[in-house]
């Protein structure tokens, strides 16, 4: 059952997933914390099978947990320093943890269920009437490359860090802080140039290669209505 969730979510129209993320994201800060918690649970249930089928999925979820804990910790410390009673500070930190987790789970669900190209095309489709077809495909390409570059950046960063620790085991925090960003930027600079050549070499530098071919099905209608109803209900409750 759970294994069937991942392909089902992936097959939904990217425009639906993007629209839900764009509407639900800001709403997560407006709805009650109980509903935000409910959203986080539902999103986690969807994300789990999606993450399982991706090599970097579990790592991304772990990074998310660390990120939430970091901000929760910072909030508790800052609230305590400004004289907020500990009980209230803890409640506010819990509130933040729930909303932030839900928001990050929403972003991760979108990223793991929709390819960079599909997201780029969905955005281009949405803005095409405003900016015109010629600019829309450039936007789609830019966005697809930007999303495509994120895992490349992460892997370059990991490789550079590993290399520095092997080649310069005696270096301290500040020395690493100087070397690692420089090396990553140098590496990425070369990669962006080659990436540009690769895009042109594959004939993807034209509007015809970025024409959206979305198919809006009955399932998309169903989930669009369900999502809309839930968001309205949560806002009104």
């Amino acid at each position: 059952m759970m294994q069937a969730v991942a392909p089902y979510v992936r097959n939904l129209d990217p425009r639906l997933k993007l629209a839900v993320a764009l509407v639900l994201g800001p709403c997560l800060w407006k709805i009650s914390v109980v509903f935000a918690f409910l959203c986080a649970l539902v999103l986690f249930a969807i994300l789990k099978p999606l993450a399982a089928s991706q090599p970097v999925g579990p790592k991304m979820v772990r990074s998310l947990v660390f990120y939430v804990l970091l901000w929760v910790g910072i909030k508790i410390v800052l609230d305590s320093l400004t004289g907020v009673p500990l009980t209230l500070a803890a409640m506010a930190a819990f509130d933040l943890a729930v909303r932030l987790s839900a928001l990050l789970l929403l972003g991760l669900t979108l990223a793991l269920s929709t390819s960079a190209r599909a997201l780029g095309l969905a955005v281009a489709w949405a803005v095409s009437p405003l900016v015109g077809k010629e600019r829309a495909w450039r936007l789609a390409l830019s966005l697809a490359l930007m999303i495509h570059f994120l895992p490349l950046c992460l892997s370059t960063m990991a490789n550079v860090k590993e290399m520095v620790s092997r080649r310069c085991p005696g270096y301290g925090f500040w020395q690493r802080l100087l070397i690692i960003p420089q090396a990553v930027i140098r590496n990425m600079g070369q990669k962006t140039w080659n990436q540009t050549l690769a895009v042109a070499g594959r004939g993807l530098e034209g509007a015809e290669a970025w024409e959206p071919e979305f198919v809006w099905t009955g399932h998309d209608w169903l989930w669009a209505i369900v999502a809309l109803l839930f968001i309205v209900l949560m806002l009104l409750a």
Partner: peptide
């Protein structure tokens, strides 16, 4: 090109 990762743009 040599670097396959840069040429593969699909998911």
């Amino acid at each position: 090109m040599q670097d396959a990762d840069l040429q593969i743009l699909g998911a």
